[in-house]
């Protein structure tokens, strides 16, 4: 068998993948590479850590959700497979999961009275979406100094570096270096992509990396009390909420990887059989 062809192809693809990965490099200055933090869901066999997702959801709910929406998420998602409140007992209908029901019921959502047609408030059900903190993007921007807090539903897929990027932003706030002019509603973060050239008054060859982010440092140590007794350091909260957002961005990741392993095993066996068949058919043909 001619492995050389396969190898050539594989290396070609690897080169292309690298080219693609390198593509979103920034024009100038750039940001620091995200911190090297390990998550349980990384790698081809990685899975989400349910306890971590529960803690992460708590951080989202108590801190992030004050400003950030998660428009694509419904309460029922919390109880689905590989989610924070997944319980195999409610496999057939995660809507019946009591945790999920209780969480949903803590929220009030808008509805229309089916008889009078008047707008009413009612308790949320698992089928309802997470309520947004603001009625629309304009209101969100107006309440936050002109910069609307982005929706977090797919944030880990929408930023290069994924969960590590989110973690790095949340833990990356530092005092701006001397010579950097920080305007109102601006916060320096070396992990946030931007171009600080115009705000920099120091050496022009050494513009600091990073950018100005409108969000002030959102998390501090001890801000969220974890129900499982985990020590609530800044890093812990940041890591847990990053994991939660990574899960929300790609809730089928575990199922995807597990399917992938089965598919790869099948294809490898199939390839072996076909190769044997190929050798037998071509036996005796000089070519």
């Amino acid at each position: 068998m001619k492995l050389s062809v396969v190898k050539t192809l594989a290396s070609g693809v690897a080169a292309l993948a690298l080219a693609g990965a390198a593509a979103p490099a920034l024009a100038s200055g750039g940001a620091e590479h995200p911190k090297e933090v390990a998550f349980s869901f990384e790698g081809p066999l990685g899975k989400f850590d349910q306890a971590q997702l529960q803690r992460g959801y708590k951080v989202y709910r108590e801190v992030c959700s004050a400003c950030h929406s998660m428009n694509l998420m419904s309460f029922r998602n919390l109880g689905q497979e590989s989610g924070p409140f997944w319980d195999p007992k409610f496999k057939h209908n995660p809507n019946d999961n009591p945790y999920v029901k209780a969480i949903a019921a803590e929220y009030e959502v808008d509805d229309i009275d089916s008889e009078t047609g008047e707008p009413v408030k009612r308790k949320a059900t698992p089928a309802d979406k997470f309520p947004s903190p603001y009625p629309n993007a304009t209101a969100a921007a107006a309440a936050n100094g002109g910069a609307a807090p982005p929706d977090l539903s797919v944030m880990a897929k929408a930023r290069h570096g994924g969960a590590r990027y989110i973690y790095s932003i949340l833990t990356g706030y530092v005092n701006p270096p001397a010579g950097l002019h920080v305007g109102p509603n601006q916060h320096y973060n070396p992990y946030f992509p931007g171009d600080l050239t115009s705000a920099w008054h120091g050496d022009h060859k050494n513009v600091p990396k990073g950018g100005f982010i409108a969000m002030p440092q959102p998390l501090t140590a001890g801000q969220v009390t974890f129900d499982d007794g985990t020590k609530s350091t800044l890093e812990q909260q940041a890591k847990d909420v990053s994991a939660f957002i990574a899960w929300a961005s790609d809730p089928k990741a575990t199922e995807r990887k597990q399917t992938g392993v089965a598919v790869m095993i099948f294809l490898a066996l199939f390839a072996g059989l076909t190769y044997a068949s190929y050798r037998r058919i071509w036996r005796g043909i000089a070519h």
């Binding site: 199939f270 068949s277 037998r280």
Partner: peptide, 16 residues
């Protein structure tokens, strides 16, 4: 028996 391998490969294709 030699053709078993062809049948197996064909079956794998159909299964896939």
């Amino acid at each position: 028996r030699r053709d078993f391998i062809h049948i197996a490969a064909g079956a794998a294709a159909v299964g896939g």
